[in-house]
Design a binder for these strands. Structure first.
Lengths: 349, 349
DNA sequence: TTGAAAGCGTTACCAG
DNA sequence: CTGGTAACGCTTTCAA
């Protein structure tokens, strides 16, 4: 391994190692390592000298070697099982903001779409591929969450299940969401308010968001002494359209509907318009949607804002800070809903 | 390191290593490694025996150790600089499908949103963090692409620049796209067709998509002997609205507009409706949009389909197969446009 | 404040 | 077909 010029990058290996740096700076490998990791107990002068050499040689640590020795990967994984892909625009924003937060904490975000069984999930940790995961599509009784908690592996959920003791999560406060949406409509004078819920298949799979949105609606109805009317159609606009028509027939005096997402709202509008009524003059509509979606329709949707970017960001932030400091207390964040009145709600005639 | 039962997992280290497996199976580490990597030259019986031990001990290879020794990370990175975030829904679909393709080829996809300067980009490779990258937001004269090509680092672009020799990419065929869109409108009888292009700021930054879409429009106009009328407003709907109004005033006989994305189309519709005309009876509209978006508006948008999912998938597929077989020829995929006639185009009155 | 050396868990080459 | 043994590039005691 002898080279003609000891302070030039190694040409044999093709890439500069910590060894080359140490040699060129006339210090030991340990010292370089300390400097790399910002450890104290290094003479100012030495630090500076080594920094210069690092700069000059264009040295970059080998991440796998670091991970192997340091026993952590500096990676976190976002698990988004594509299996029952209910790919509304919603979920997509999560990724970017989670990646942002991860990078801000010096972590790299992996996106994993393959549905993982328990073994494969645990292997993610055992193989040291990832230091922690963000779970999406959380079920009320989520096996993944329970096993991770039992094993003491760090994770954060977007959404949450029944028993969340000892788990960190970020979720919408669906109870408050429906209380707010319904109150808005009731304040306007509506007394018969229907609901296009998440698909029945999702509730059947015990997905937290499906269970909680329906419960939120039912509870809010009860508190306001309204009679609930709901359907749980698939995401397909045509199915939603049919469901909305059923709802309108079932309760002809219905004057408003709440829809779980933007696409559904459009289908509902069509059904309403077909009965000769128009939105918002004769019929009101509240959706759960981001501003981006809400502004696409005509008229723009009055909506409960769904802060996907914030949720993704927070989840990654919580996870990375857990990893930095395991003693950190849990964080369970329920995001308060925010009603944005646009063009689809109004007092009934 | 001596343990009471040599064929039980090591409790001292906390995790099972290839050593434990070798010992428990009564073979050498090399043999286990061969089996792990599906190498030939292993006796059937030995292979089976070792597989069983692996199963029994619940062994999973340490990925960093593998990467270090094998000199590859089995990771690819999707670079999506969030800097000038033109976060239309468009880009978001890319991530999921790219992750899917990566996983299908046994790679992990990293999502990197921090804008990387040249040094940091190269460090990604030098640190062996990633085996290859997918570049998004490609400029006509993309410094990243040029340096990667010069260094011989594997990468694939979504989009492409001026000089793409020796580079693999996936992009829309914007020339054909506008030829198709304009031909459709001309066939219907339109002779004055405006265009809401990508933001001027994007073209100024020399982004391939901005440059090529505008050029596509201008070329198509020339071929069909139409007079071009266009604006390059920011993505903000209000800006688009203003631009559309200007266009309508500039050429009162205009009967159709092409818009770069779904959100823009909605703003255009408002501007049109304000002049007392309605879509599609008095005015036609063609957008570049995915079906998901196109179906949100009323009426649903006649559109050139923008196959984001396919583009992301192909990019990751090309990259991973390049990595597996460096001798593979380049792939430069120009996706042919597909016109989907929905509710916003019709013959002018 | 610094250095030496022992790992970290694999892969890959070379013998046999 | 199998085993021994150097790497791979870094972190982390432990001494000095």
């Amino acid at each position: 391994m002898s080279r003609p010029f000891a302070d030039e990058p190694s040409f044999s290996s093709g890439s500069v190692t910590i060894h080359d740096v140490a040699q060129a700076a006339g210090v030991s490998v340990s010292t370089v390592s300390r400097i790399l990791n910002g450890k104290p107990d290094v003479a100012k002068a030495t630090r500076q000298r080594v920094q210069n050499v690092i700069e000059r040689l264009g040295y970059t640590p080998h991440v796998s070697a670091q991970s192997l020795a340091a026993r952590r990967s500096n990676q976190i994984s976002l698990l988004f099982p594509l299996e029952h892909a209910n790919l509304t625009q919603l979920e997509l924003d999560f990724f970017v903001s989670a990646a942002e937060a991860a990078e801000a904490a010096d972590y790299i975000l992996n996106l994993i779409t393959t549905p993982l069984d328990t073994t494969r999930l645990l292997n993610l940790y055992k193989s040291k591929q990832t230091d922690g995961v963000i779970l999406m599509q959380v079920q009320m009784d989520d096996a993944r969450a329970q096993i991770l908690r039992a094993q003491g592996y760090p994770f954060v959920m977007i959404g949450h299940g029944q028993d969340s003791d000892g788990m960190s999560f970020v979720d919408m406060d669906f109870e408050a969401t429906f209380a707010l949406a319904l109150q808005h409509l009731v304040d306007l004078g509506h007394r018969q308010v229907g609901f296009i819920a998440r698909p029945y298949t999702m509730r059947q799979r015990n997905l937290g968001s499906a269970v909680r949105t329906l419960k939120g609606y039912l509870d809010a109805c009860e508190r306001l002494s309204l009679t609930p009317h709901y359907r749980e159609p698939l995401l397909d606009p045509q199915e939603v359209y049919v469901a909305a028509r059923e709802l309108l027939r079932e309760e002809p005096s219905m004057t408003a509907i709440i829809a779980s997402n933007g696409a559904a709202s459009v289908a509902v509008m069509r059904a309403v318009q077909e009965t000769g009524r128009s939105v918002p003059a004769d019929f009101s509509l509240v959706a759960l949607a981001t501003a981006k979606i809400a502004n696409l329709t005509t008229p723009p949707l009055t909506a409960i804002h769904f802060p996907t970017d914030k949720m993704g960001y927070e989840a990654a932030r919580i996870l990375t800070s857990m990893l930095r400091d395991p003693a950190r207390p849990l964080e369970q964040i329920l995001i308060a809903p925010e009603l944005i009145v646009r063009g689809t709600t109004q007092s009934p005639r």
